[in-house]
């Protein structure tokens, strides 16, 4: 497992720059429930959480639901192999954003969301349909994986969102349910370190 502290630091620095820009001429606190406003498109960038060393894409809010598609890249120096990935993400935000007690910064906290990702990895080692030497059903698709995600986000003004997410790999979720003691004995944070990854990203609302 790799440390992503440096990555988070870089993303935070980029986000802080955006915070400074959006704080100028800040309007009064936006009332709760802004998330229930009409649909929005956005640009998204994310690092880690199995979607890539860097992944960029677009998404759309549907009130409390969001769907996004990201194109991710993992350099060989980082992942051991060079990979391109396409991820489809869904999120459900059950709570309205909460204005924080910091009016000058116009920051709202979305305290919890849950979601899932379907990830397609493009590489000659991976396949969706089995190559010809295999009997039918010998293996499932090796180029597809999924994750269960949960996270929180900070909304800066009306355009910027920073999110921090924990993504648990599908095979890890199954293994954890079947062997919780093993993971708790061998990994930190109730064993969740062994089946998942932190991710960080930013969204820029369009319109």
């Amino acid at each position: 497992m790799k440390s992503c502290i440096a990555t988070i630091t870089v993303m935070f620095m980029l986000t802080s720059t955006g915070v400074g820009a959006s704080s100028a001429g800040t309007s009064p606190q936006v009332a709760e429930g802004e998330r229930d406003a009409p649909h929005h498109n956005y640009i998204v960038a994310q690092s880690a959480g199995y979607v890539g060393f860097i992944a960029v894409g677009m998404g759309r809010d549907f009130q409390r639901h969001t769907i996004s598609a990201l194109l991710g890249y993992v350099p060989e120096e980082i992942g051991g192999v060079e990979l391109w990935q396409l991820s489809l993400k869904y999120e459900w935000h059950p709570f309205a954003a909460i204005p924080l007690d910091d009016p000058s910064n116009n920051i709202k906290l979305n305290p919890f969301y849950i979601g899932t990702s379907l990830i397609y990895g493009r590489h000659t080692n991976l396949f969706v349909n089995e190559p010809g030497q295999y009997p039918d059903g010998y293996y499932g698709p090796t180029a597809l994986r999924s994750t269960l995600n949960m996270g929180l986000s900070l909304l800066y003004g009306k355009k910027y969102t920073l999110f921090i997410e924990y993504a648990a790999l599908d095979t890890g979720v199954v293994a954890y349910v079947r062997h919780p003691e093993f993971f708790m004995d061998n990994y930190d944070f109730l064993g969740l370190e062994g089946i998942g990854s932190l991710a960080v990203g930013i969204k820029l609302k369009l319109e």
Partner: peptide, 13 residues
């Protein structure tokens, strides 16, 4: 809390 990152399910390390 969580100082580990995975960039891909298909990493080799």
């Amino acid at each position: 809390l969580l100082n580990s990152c995975q960039y891909s399910a298909w990493e080799t390390d």
